[in-house]
Simulated assay, not measured.
Amino acid sequence: MKKLQEKIPEFSAMTTYPDTLWYEGDRDLLKRRKVSIVGTRRPLSYTKNTIFQLASALAKRKVLVVSGGAMGVDAMAHRGAGAEHTVAVMACGLEHRYPAVNASLLDEIAQKGLLLSQFAPGFKARPWSFVVRNELVVALGEVLVVGEAELDSGTMRSVAHALRMGKPIYVLPHRLGESGGTASLLKEKKAEAIYDIEAFAERFGIIEEPVDDPFREFCKTTPTYEEAAHRFGERLFEAELEGRITVREGRVFLL
């Protein structure tokens, strides 16, 4: 781990700029556009799946996903983005892989992405250090996405940071009786719901196709859906979900 020497403009929005920042991994990732994602440590299956898809859609556009390395929503955000497109902001010294259940995930982020902390080596997480960590997570992102949260949860402290910093807040739509914190934000018009993952992700960038993309070249021949599925499998399904192809009368067409 190393000290981060250069100033990070986004941290100027914090109450106090960190005295020292420590990092492990690729610090150049901080030059990318960034979206912060937070939420409960015990999310619903719907929340986990949707956050994974959202983080993946952002990462495909080279957007850096920022979260806190915790269980639940944080972990799904990191996994959805992939280690090389994420930064985990830690509430402890970077030699500690906390929580232990995410140790392998944090190791991969350290190798391919970025771990960041304002706590010196040897420091073990304390209840108050998570609050401090949350302010860094919120400050880094252009916007804050709250996957799921109850009214009296720690996640709502992240929301308070975002409101103070003037950051736009987005939430997942939930059923009645679920995620009281995000429901309250919508009711009070302090947040906007994400109803279309691809439309949300497109606000931050476009998917850059390889110059010589075999999938695109194949689709230019308007193959049958069965032929394309047999040859490209999941890639075909992803392209259809992302609106980059359409299927008419059993044939695939590029959009």
Rank of each mutant, 00 (worst) to 15 (best):
residue 103 A to D: 03
residue 114 L to T: 08
residue 144 L to M: 01
residue 88 A to I: 04
residue 135 E to H: 13
residue 142 E to N: 07
residue 115 L to T: 06
residue 123 F to P: 12
residue 119 F to Y: 14
residue 100 A to P: 11
residue 80 G to Q: 04
residue 90 M to K: 12
residue 89 V to Y: 12
residue 86 T to Q: 06
residue 135 E to T: 09
residue 73 V to W: 04
residue 134 N to D: 15
residue 90 M to Y: 11
residue 95 E to P: 09
residue 87 V to E: 06
residue 84 E to P: 14
residue 72 G to T: 00
residue 93 G to M: 11
residue 96 H to T: 12
residue 106 L to F: 08
residue 89 V to Q: 09
residue 84 E to R: 15
residue 100 A to I: 06
residue 86 T to H: 09
residue 116 L to I: 07
residue 109 I to Y: 02
residue 68 G to P: 02
residue 122 G to R: 07
residue 120 A to E: 12
residue 125 A to I: 14
residue 121 P to W: 04
residue 70 A to I: 05
residue 117 S to C: 05
residue 105 L to H: 01
residue 129 S to Y: 13
residue 84 E to G: 15
residue 101 V to L: 00
residue 134 N to I: 01
residue 109 I to Q: 03
residue 112 K to A: 08
residue 121 P to M: 02
residue 127 P to A: 08
residue 143 V to A: 10
residue 112 K to Y: 07
residue 144 L to F: 01
residue 94 L to S: 13
residue 120 A to P: 14
residue 104 S to N: 02
residue 93 G to E: 10
residue 138 V to F: 04
residue 139 A to I: 00
residue 85 H to I: 03
residue 101 V to N: 02
residue 79 R to G: 00
residue 100 A to D: 07
residue 107 D to N: 08
residue 83 A to W: 02
residue 89 V to D: 10
residue 113 G to D: 06
residue 128 W to D: 14
residue 122 G to M: 03
residue 91 A to V: 12
residue 134 N to P: 13
residue 98 Y to H: 14
residue 109 I to H: 01
residue 105 L to V: 02
residue 123 F to C: 12
residue 77 A to R: 10
residue 90 M to I: 07
residue 130 F to D: 07
residue 83 A to N: 03
residue 101 V to I: 01
residue 103 A to T: 02
residue 85 H to Y: 15
residue 102 N to R: 00
residue 68 G to W: 00
residue 123 F to I: 15
residue 122 G to D: 05
residue 94 L to W: 12
residue 87 V to K: 07
residue 95 E to L: 05
residue 79 R to F: 00
residue 94 L to G: 14
residue 141 G to R: 08
residue 85 H to W: 14
residue 120 A to Q: 09
residue 93 G to S: 14
residue 67 S to W: 05
residue 94 L to V: 09
residue 144 L to S: 03
residue 112 K to R: 15
residue 143 V to G: 10
residue 84 E to H: 15
residue 111 Q to M: 03
residue 126 R to F: 13
residue 119 F to Q: 11
residue 104 S to I: 00
residue 77 A to V: 07
residue 91 A to D: 12
residue 136 L to E: 04
residue 101 V to F: 02
residue 111 Q to W: 00
residue 139 A to S: 03
residue 134 N to T: 09
residue 78 H to T: 07
residue 142 E to D: 14
residue 86 T to N: 13
residue 109 I to R: 02
residue 84 E to S: 15
residue 132 V to R: 14
residue 88 A to G: 11
residue 110 A to S: 11
residue 80 G to N: 05
residue 76 M to K: 13
